[in-house]
Design a protein around this nucleic acid. Sequence first.
RNA 1: GGACCCGUGGUGUAGCGGCCCAACAUGCCAGCCUGUCACGCUGGAGAUCGCCGGUUCGAAUCCGGUCGGGUCCGCCA
Length: 645
Amino acid sequence: MDKQACHGPSLIWPRSGYDTPAMTEHPPSLATPYRTHTCGQLRAGDIGAEVRLSGWVHRRRDHGQLIFLDLRDRHGITQVVVDGTDSPAAHDVASRVRSEFVVSVSGTVTARLAGTENARLSTGAIELQTTALEILNEARTPPFYINDPDAPVDESLRLKYRYLDIRREPMQQRLLLRSRLVQAIRQAHHENGFVEIETPTLIKSTPEGARDFIVPSRLQPGSVYALPQSPQQLKQILMVGGVDRYFQIARCYRDEDLRGDRQPEFTQLDLEMSFVDEATVMDFVERMAIEVSQAVTPERPLLEVPFPRFTYGEVMERFGSDKPDLRFGMELVDLAPEIPTPDGVPASGFRVFDDALAGGGRVKAIVAPGLGDAPRSRIDELTETAKRFGARGLAHLALEATGSVKGPIVKFLGDDLAERLCARAGAGPGDLVLIVADGTEVTNEVLGRLRTDLGARLGLADPNVLAYCWVHRFPMYKWDVEGGRWDATHNPFSGVVPEDEALLTTVSGDPSRPSPEDPAGRARALQYDLALNGWELGGGSIRIWRRDLLELSFALQGYSLERMRNMFGAMLEAFEYGAPPHGGIALGIDRWAALLTNQATIREVMAFPKTQSGTDLMLEAPSPPDAGQYADLGLRVVPVEERKA
RNA sequence: GGACCCGUGGUGUAGCGGCCCAACAUGCCAGCCUGUCACGCUGGAGAUCGCCGGUUCGAAUCCGGUCGGGUCCGCCA
């Protein structure tokens, strides 16, 4: 994801070329007492007009008696000419002007002299002959280049001076795209009968899920609010309220460690629908996603419409990931069918393979195209990656250009089997076959990680394509070894696939005494995730809206009725007053915007993001409260040493 | 909680035991210039190499710690 890829040539700045249509559409209302037009507005048709422009000095070219100023605002750049013989007063001001000064210019729109037109500017046919120039505000020399969109700048500097970074073209582009994204989302929802409702951000803490951010209450000393991790319960309660179709662009908060795709506060498109099944929700979201993509990034092709729908089982088998990047192949291939099993005993000749198969595990492979002649160091690197994700090792077979198979394990397998394995994997001359032999879960996971890793390194994915896909039929629960209970894989309210309802039982017969052998472990959830280009965009489910199933599911998850009431009391009570069947989804707006602009992190599509350690370098937040704030809240700080004790 | 990478004039980089009181580009300041658009030309200022400590005759360079930023694992229903 390089910076140029940030979608298309754009532009305000002359370096990059030309203006996008979106930036040159001018509502007539942008005129103010400070300007008659914006800096991206004037054209040959305006020649002769007396105008006034205001903006920042993008660049100054001083030729002595003649000074050129490139005047910039977010709409574009207009060249201003100050002639010392025509208007000495303005020339005097122009010679004092520096980069990023805010100035206001009055003058006449004139055609540029023949041969001096600038094709890279949308205003390049004209220039402004200055009659009056006023400095509205001076500016210190900026700490980095505002006028060069390609200049690399340390990200922490950009964050400290975010207002200057936002003045730069790439950030303007991304914030604009994000604005259009949200606008398109809102439009699609309103057109489909959704009601936009705001839910509170001071709510009740629940012990489930991620760590809550908490806010001490002054009126209720000793008690705290929590900031919502998502509006989950509230939106379900809205369904009980008969809202039918709800959506919200909702700010959410999770106090967990940060990543490139995770910030402590982030924005979700949150929606919920009543009287729906899985297909209703998926169909709507899919149509909406297509409309929105085409509205926001019409130049980017969708890989497949309708979006492919995979079951969790299939996607893990084929891609080793529940958020596969479908822009390239490199699918996982099962090698077991080639391995002979005389008397039912696997006999490849290579112990690692045979033991894995005999133990109920798998032998699977992916093909790294063109890496057949990779040096030992490269193989070692891949092996390290495989081990980091839990594999015991990584076997490989290299197909030379001549077609002969090389590799340390050929001597165990024999040439014939080695060749058949390569053929099964789909490898051609010059390719490298990477093989993992382990339990099913580890094998798929490790190969999936290698696939993602190699796909990125080898540049296999077309950066222009948008590859959406659905993944559904997730397992309802995952066995929690320490807790001795079934843990919801996604949302504790996810419904169960109707035909699996009977599986919600335990071997013991008592849902409050679960064991890893329970049929419940095989139950599949009415849960669906939407993935885009290898990122999880979001997920949702049809909820359990029947009281009996909810109690059963919670019992399997090890929650007593009392604990349930404590955590979800309001919602459970609401459910006793006639809850309609309902379900919904939440999509990460930050991730979506990052993907649509081909950025590697969501920080690039947020105006004021935080660092990995959760600080805001511009505001210098967080900061210690003052004594009075503590007193109001009845709080006292415990020194770090005592906390550890 | 852990692993790894980065930190040198305003900015981006080079230098990786002595050739360095640090180089290049750009920015900044001053002067000149009436057709430039990354204007040009001439001159100038600007860094005790994140910080602390150690090794060494000698440290930007090696080692330890620390601070800041990033990537990843754990974590994130």
